[in-house]
């Protein structure tokens, strides 16, 4: 019944205005970087003519130069070309696994959030058990079962990520279901199915898509991490985590072999995170 604190709102106003001006260019930059990366993943040949697999023992461990932007590795392969060609696998870890986890997460989460109490309780308990394990451990167990390999790495990351999304979806579903505007729709006389489709689902999925943008970065790190451990694709496939792993024994003599693929991972993850947060900011600015 309180009147709220209208007068204190005027104290907060300038800060809110300031934030909005600085953020869009950052979000746009992140979007452009991500676009370039996707382009590299789909059409690597427009960025480099060098063959990522061509070895040249005479060119072994050359430092970065104009000819070899990121230098060459032990077998004389061009690191820049390998980084560009590696984008395909690393991004597909991120996008495929996140998309799959998202779909499963939405199905489980919405079902649980809308189900009667006992069903919801069982699903919630199962999610709690699944969430008790570190994501990397879940992925490792899946690999232990299925064996190493590129596809299995994607499956492993997906399995590890599903409970996280499912839990978020379930909680959001319950929150939205209990929110005043859903009850207002009931009072208005709207049909139950229409309420779920027109009001509940869009309000659950909207923020989740934003979260998933950030999740792409997490999945990329997980995927390259499993490759780094030697559980994903095998040499000589160009893949960032694998390249890092190959390059770590020559750190003292040829740092570039390991540093540039790592930089690629970090830049990719930063751009998905920044883009995700930017979208989140816009979404919240609009919704709340």
């Amino acid at each position: 019944m309180s009147v709220g604190r209208p007068d204190l709102l005027e104290l907060a106003r300038p800060a809110a205005g300031r934030r909005r001006r600085t953020v869009p260019p950052v979000g746009a930059v992140a979007g452009v970087v991500l676009g370039v990366l996707v382009l590299a993943a789909v059409l690597p040949w427009i960025f480099t003519g060098a063959d990522p697999l061509a070895t040249a023992t005479s060119d072994s461990q050359l430092p970065p130069s104009l000819e070899h932007l990121f230098g060459t590795d032990k077998l004389g392969r061009d690191v820049f070309s390998r980084v560009v060609h590696g984008a395909g696998l690393s991004l597909s870890f991120g996008f495929t696994a996140t998309l799959a986890a998202l779909i499963l997460g939405i199905l489980i989460g919405v079902a649980s959030g809308l189900a009667p109490r006992p069903v919801d309780n069982v699903i919630m308990r199962a999610l709690e058990i699944a969430l008790a394990f570190p994501e990397l451990l879940v992925a490792l167990v899946v690999i232990a079962l299925l064996g190493p390999g590129t596809t299995n790495v994607i499956v492993a990351i997906t399995v590890a990520a599903v409970p996280v999304y499912a839990r978020v979806v379930r909680i959001t579903t319950i929150q939205v279901r209990q929110s005043a505007f859903i009850e207002a729709s009931v009072a208005l006389g709207q049909h139950r199915v229409a309420i779920v489709l027109k009001h509940l689902l869009p309000n659950v999925i909207g923020p989740l898509l934003v979260l998933a943008t950030i999740g792409i970065g997490t999945s990329i790190i997980a995927g390259s991490g499993l490759s780094f451990l030697g559980l994903g694709p095998v040499s000589p496939t160009p893949e960032w985590g694998l390249m890092l792993s190959d390059g770590r024994n020559s750190l003292g003599t040829a740092w570039w072999i390991a540093v540039f693929p790592g930089l690629a991972i970090t830049v990719t993850v930063i751009s998905t995170t920044v883009l995700g947060r930017y979208l989140q900011g816009r979404f919240e600015g609009r919704a709340r």
Partner: peptide, 17 residues
């Protein structure tokens, strides 16, 4: 942002280097 986005197997290598 950088701390969160950098994979540990890379920051570890950088620190080692």
């Amino acid at each position: 942002l950088i701390a969160i986005s950098s994979p540990t197997f890379w920051t570890g290598l950088l620190l080692l280097t």
